[in-house]
């Protein structure tokens, strides 16, 4: 279940389709809908405000340039943009920091729970359901997914950071994702 309802997701696909035709207004609408979300994800990965700003801009420019390549059967527009900003931010992170530093500092990153804030175009019910998603995961599953997604860590690096065998890390990631899929299908 994503922070947007079915109608909103449909509208997002229409916008991307129009962007492929060179419609800048569609880009503006998409920007308005996703800029806060992408800023949040980029900031979670990079921290430096200038890097965050540039990465978000790069993401929307890429989205504009690659709008014609978007495949709705591979994921919703939210997934397309979220993974685009994630990959752009990870590339920037790898350019700037050494992986060891990222792994060593992970304990601080994961120490506390993050307070959820409402996303744009999101009602209270969906917000609560999103928050509930995280609590359904085990601590290890959540940590492993966060390390993989937000820190770009490989399974070996996650194992090192969590002081766990690689096999366990694979299980955390796989079961975590399966649980997320089950939750999504339950609420959709």
């Amino acid at each position: 279940m994503l922070p947007f309802d079915a109608d909103a997701l449909r509208q997002h696909r229409i916008w991307v389709n129009r962007m492929a035709s060179g419609d800048a207004e569609a880009l503006t609408e998409l920007h308005h809908a996703y800029v806060s979300i992408l800023f949040g994800i980029a900031r979670r990965i990079l921290h430096d405000p200038e890097d965050v700003r540039e990465v978000v801009q790069d993401t929307f420019v890429k989205a504009w340039n690659q709008a014609g390549q978007y495949r709705p059967e591979r994921g919703e527009v939210s997934a397309w943009l979220v993974f685009m900003v994630r990959n752009t931010a990870i590339d920037r992170l790898r350019q700037r920091t050494r992986r060891a530093h990222a792994v060593a500092g992970l304990a601080d990153d994961l120490a506390g729970e993050q307070d959820l804030q409402p996303a744009p175009h999101e009602d209270a019910e969906r917000r609560d359901l999103l928050a509930h998603t995280l609590t359904e995961l085990s601590t290890e599953q959540r940590r492993a997914l966060e390390l993989a997604f937000f820190n770009g860590c490989s399974q070996h690096e996650i194992a090192q950071a969590m002081s766990a065998p690689v096999g366990n890390v694979k299980n955390y990631l796989r079961r975590g994702l399966l649980k997320l899929r089950q939750l999504a299908s339950r609420h959709d």
Partner: peptide, 19 residues
């Protein structure tokens, strides 16, 4: 695969508070 992508996206948005 689409379900996986959307599910992981949901997780990412939940874990990273929109700014």
């Amino acid at each position: 695969f689409k379900d996986c992508a959307d599910s992981l996206t949901q997780f990412a948005i939940s874990a990273a508070a929109p700014r």
